[in-house]
C-alpha cells in the first residue's frame, strides 16, 4: 500500500515540476496559463490520491478530496478570469 502512495506522490511532484517548468519556459502568456492550470491540478490530484490511499480514517480521506475539488474549482475560475482580462487588454491595445 505504501509503495502505491510513494509512487503517486512522486508522480504528483513531477507534475508540479512540469507546471512550474511550463510557467517558466513557455513563450507567451496564454500558453503559460494553459500549462499552469492543468499541470498543478493534476499534481495536486495525484498527491491527494496518495494521501487518500494511506489515510487512517474515512473522514480524513473525504476532507482531502474536498480540498482537491475546491482547488479544481478555484483554478478553473482563475484560468477563466485571467484569460478574459488578457483578452480584454489585447483588444484595447488593438483599438
Amino acid at each position: 500500500m505504501h509503495i502505491l502512495a510513494v509512487l503517486l506522490c512522486l508522480a504528483g511532484a513531477f507534475f508540479f515540476l512540469a507546471g512550474t517548468a511550463g510557467l517558466l519556459r513557455f513563450p507567451d502568456s496564454p500558453s503559460r496559463l494553459h500549462a499552469l492550470t492543468k499541470a498543478d491540478n493534476l499534481g495536486l490530484g495525484l498527491i491527494v490520491l496518495a494521501l487518500v490511499v494511506t489515510s487512517s480514517s474515512l473522514a480524513v480521506a473525504l476532507k482531502v478530496i474536498l480540498v482537491w475539488l475546491l482547488a479544481l474549482a478555484a483554478s478553473t475560475s482563475i484560468c477563466f478570469l485571467l484569460g478574459q482580462s488578457m483578452l480584454r487588454q489585447d483588444q484595447r491595445q488593438d483599438q
Binding site: G12, F16, G19, T20, L23, S29, R32, L33, L36, T37, D40, N41, G43, L44, I47, V67, A71, A74, S75, I78, L82
Partner: peptide
Amino acid sequence: MAMQLFGTTGVA
C-alpha cells in the same frame, strides 16, 4: 499565474 501556482503548491 505564478501566484496561483504558489496557492496550489501551498495547498499540496
